[in-house]
């Protein structure tokens, strides 16, 4: 059972991306790519060779590898359906947030390593926005830790019973909203970034991985699928009651799927924000998280 829980995210993560794309296709009146398309893409990319520019160094090759490794590490501490992650320990909240930061750091310096001004621009935007996202994530986690008195993600989520919810409803609702925005921003989703666009003026995340190809791109795609899963579980976790029973894994995965569909709906109905409007949204998320922390401290 433990193995099952540990393997589940790694198997199912790309499915979420497929689900989002399917939802968008349905909204647009298209048939859309099959649900399993992300898996086919990964397989296709892994079968290709990679081309490396002569200006790049080992950093460029290390970027996708470390990015994936860090994301896998984060995945191993993230709880699933009331069960602790395989490597869950007291204080893993901090590790969780830092490995996600590490993965982004290496994506950014790999982009800078190409020497392309275009990728440098993307890196600059990514770092700019993540300085605004991280306070929202950190302060939100701090508020949750303060409310529950637990220092591991599993402890936090399993303590959030309906009783705790009624006692701290405003703070928890604020954190959940802030995490929702963090989820959209970190996964380069509309309204912050458009994962499909290749329009140079507007894209953020996509521009940083333009020079990666073949297996490297596959690693990056897989890491971002995992990231979608992990941050999704951060949104879903506080909302579901979790006590560690078997069926909760099912409800957890179902909730993640619902979140993916909701993301698809958001992407189909909302316009992408202007680049100057994005910081406002992210600062707003940070403000909500810090308000939640202040409420939790009182």
């Amino acid at each position: 059972m433990v193995v099952f829980h540990a393997v589940l995210p790694f198997v199912l993560a790309p499915l979420l991306a497929g689900l989002i794309n399917k939802t968008k296709a349905v909204f647009a009146g298209r048939r859309g790519a099959p649900l399993l398309q992300p898996y086919y893409d990964l397989g296709k990319l892994l079968g290709k060779g990679a081309v490396y520019s002569a200006t790049t160094t080992w950093i460029f090759r290390a970027g996708p590898l470390i990015g994936l490794a860090a994301t896998v590490a984060a995945c191993l501490v993230a709880p699933l359906g009331g069960r602790p992650g395989p490597l869950s320990f007291e204080g893993d909240v901090i590790l969780f947030a830092y490995v996600l930061g590490l993965s982004r750091f290496f994506t950014v310096i790999a982009a800078l390593d190409t020497g392309s001004s275009f990728e440098g621009m993307g890196a600059s935007r990514e770092v700019h926005f993540s300085t605004l996202v991280e306070p929202a994530l950190w302060l939100g986690l701090a508020a949750l830790v303060r409310i529950t008195g637990q220092f591991s993600l599993h402890g936090v989520f399993s303590t959030l019973s309906p009783d705790v919810w009624t006692a701290h409803a405003p703070a928890l609702a604020l954190v959940a909203t802030a995490f929702g925005i963090v989820f959209l921003a970190e996964n380069a989703r509309i309204p912050v970034d458009d994962p499909n666009t290749h329009l140079e003026l507007t894209m953020i995340h996509e521009v940083m991985v333009l020079d990666h190809g073949g297996p490297d791109l596959a690693l990056i795609e897989y890491a971002s699928a995992l990231r979608l899963w992990i941050l999704g579980s951060l949104v879903v976790g506080p909302l579901l009651p979790q006590s560690g029973e078997g069926w909760e894994a099912v409800s957890f995965v179902a909730a993640l799927a619902a979140l993916a569909v909701a993301t698809g709906v958001v992407e189909s109905t909302l316009p992408r924000l202007r680049l100057l409007g994005v910081p406002k949204l992210l600062v707003g998320a940070g403000v909500m998280s810090s308000l939640a922390l202040v409420l939790a401290l009182v």
């Binding site: 600062v283 707003g284 403000v287 810090s290 308000l291 202040v294």
Partner: peptide
């Protein structure tokens, strides 16, 4: 907004 947060605290 950031100053507002400080004010709030």
């Amino acid at each position: 907004m950031v100053i507002g947060m400080a004010t709030l605290a």
